[in-house]
Design a protein around this nucleic acid. Structure first.
Lengths: 329, 329
DNA sequence: TTGTAAGCGTTATCAC
DNA sequence: GTGATAACGCTTACAA
């Protein structure tokens, strides 16, 4: 920039103005543009950030970058973020509480203009760090009601109920459930949703039909083995698609037909559900939509930090595919 | 920082020194630490970057963030990068040439300290932008020999040959191939590898047994339909695991058994291959290893930009699973 | 319209 | 050991 100004024979301020499209006489503009082109001038993003107090970066913190549900969210977020002229910085938290809180605290360094976070556990230290953050944060997921932070949520209790209702309607009565950890927010919500839904349909809650693992493929595969060892269910609801894929393959490995012998419903409606055989019915929790909304909220808040905390809700819906379709016997 | 210095009653310079752990009398150190704690001082990353001329950020540009092969690479890269105290910025290029080149040119803004890029096409403008880049770039993938840029590659020709050899040895003779676009670097390499391998085993190259689509699941599914319509092959080699999963499901949908009726081998050895049923044999191209190496090269080069361009090679190997395992008849 | 100069929050180089 | 002071590369009042 210094060089450009010198080369164009104008002050450094004039050069800056021209390069930012503000004023300047035709002659000055020409000279500066020329000089800039000659030396291949490119503005320094850091210096500009120091001045403007913004980095043009937005962070996304997710637990597991390999989970297709986060891939879908990430895509939606990326679209909004890059449309707003910013770039996305992705963090993987591995669901470590210390790590997530440390990440929130690091925001004080102001290396990003904002963050979208989807924690699966919310602790006291999370909420404190969230409220203390000098940089806007949008949380995707359930958040205590009194925490005034922008928040996008869905209702996975209702989501599980949709799955149970669908299976019940298809005539299934021994409905099993493979859940993720109960000490996570989605884990508890889905557990409650399952139990409530069973009762609502006049079914007993049999603990033998409920399995808990983590939210991974291998856990689904292991859980279905245990369920089958205790007696075959008519149908299985899984707390996410990764678990559902594991369960599906466990069933197939035992020579069972899906949906003929056992029907299956997953959750999150990810690509994985469509990339399975048979394709897996899945409760969509609107992950792309949640991502999009969260990104919008964040962009708006960065533009106007005085906005009151907002809360968006995305309704779940069931996508029925072959794994739970009624079939001729 | 200004505030901290004032509060501690020392100069701003002394405060900076203490906070960076350089010298200071016991008394000064105490006062500064105290003042910093009281006001909750956190250093500003941007200002620090402006001074140090580095951002502590490393970018990764991949074509498709949803492809499990990139997820594996990303994980490996993230590990090395964060161990070096830096953070990872992920870009999705959607394989757009203009986008990739623009990304390389944007490096001149110095918003990151370096970049790892895995382009599937390499054009003249790529190599020019690569060589012009003022910021270190490591390329994962084939690069023209005369381009002096750090590079990590594998040998997917040999990889395809491993697959063909394995299938041939198992007695398969009508071996089909589902490839990605021929105008991509991996596409051409795999095509050449397939043809060469067939010849080496004394088989004819039948164009009818070669299908081309993109590197996605749906393309694999569509391609296998076309192949089956023309007459069933004994075995199918797929240019990646996404294609292989699509092909697998196409076969199953036609009521064919894998590997009994048709054997199948994928490529990249991703989680998807293990999360399929039956599990898919796959040629590992060492994606995690390539990611790790690339990240190491980048970290080294950032530390010492004068290093000569280096080239690392990762050998492919075949991972045999159920989809190509010999089975009792 | 243009130039001078202050400032963004740090770090680093000096004298002292 | 410590404190001025000059960078880092840019934007932006303010004055000319």
């Amino acid at each position: 920039m210094h060089t450009v100004a010198a080369r164009a024979g104008v002050s450094i301020a004039s050069a800056s103005r021209v390069l930012n499209g503000l004023g300047g006489s035709a002659e000055t503009v020409r000279k500066v543009r020329e000089a800039a082109a000659e030396v291949g001038y490119v503005p320094n993003a850091i210096a500009r950030s120091l001045q403007s107090q913004r980095t043009g970066l937005v962070a996304l913190a997710v637990e597991d970058i390999g989970n297709p549900v986060y891939v879908a969210m990430m895509r939606a977020i990326e679209a909004v973020v890059s449309e707003s002229g910013r770039q996305l910085l992705v963090h993987q938290t591995s669901a470590s509480i210390g790590g997530e809180v440390a990440l929130l605290q690091r925001l004080a360094h102001r290396y990003v203009d904002g963050m979208i976070m989807s924690p699966i556990r919310i602790t006291e230290s999370h909420t404190r760090a969230l409220l203390d953050s000098p940089v806007p944060v949008v949380v995707i997921g359930q958040l205590p009601d009194d925490v005034a932070v922008d928040n996008v949520r869905t209702d996975s209790r209702t989501g599980v109920a949709l799955a149970v209702g669908h299976l019940h309607e298809a005539g299934h009565r021994r409905i099993a459930f493979i859940n993720g950890p109960l000490d996570t927010v989605p884990g508890t919500a889905r557990d409650a949703g399952f139990r409530t839904a069973l009762v609502k349909h006049g079914l007993n809650v049999e603990e033998d039909l409920i399995e808990v693992g983590d939210f991974q493929y291998a856990a689904g595969r292991a859980a279905i083995e245990r369920l089958l060892d205790r007696g075959r269910p008519d149908a299985v609801v899984c707390a996410n698609d990764l678990i559902a894929a594991g369960a599906l393959h466990g069933l197939l490995a035992r020579g069972l037909r899906v949906p003929h012998d056992v029907a299956l419903v997953g959750m999150d409606d990810t690509e994985l559900a469509q990339m399975s055989f048979p394709q897996i019915s899945s409760v969509s929790l609107g992950s792309a939509e949640r991502g999009r909304l969260a990104a919008r909220l964040l962009v708006e808040r960065i533009a106007d930090p005085t906005l009151p905390a907002r809360r968006e809700q995305v309704a779940p819906h069931l996508v029925i595919r072959a794994s739970s379709q009624a079939v001729a016997g």
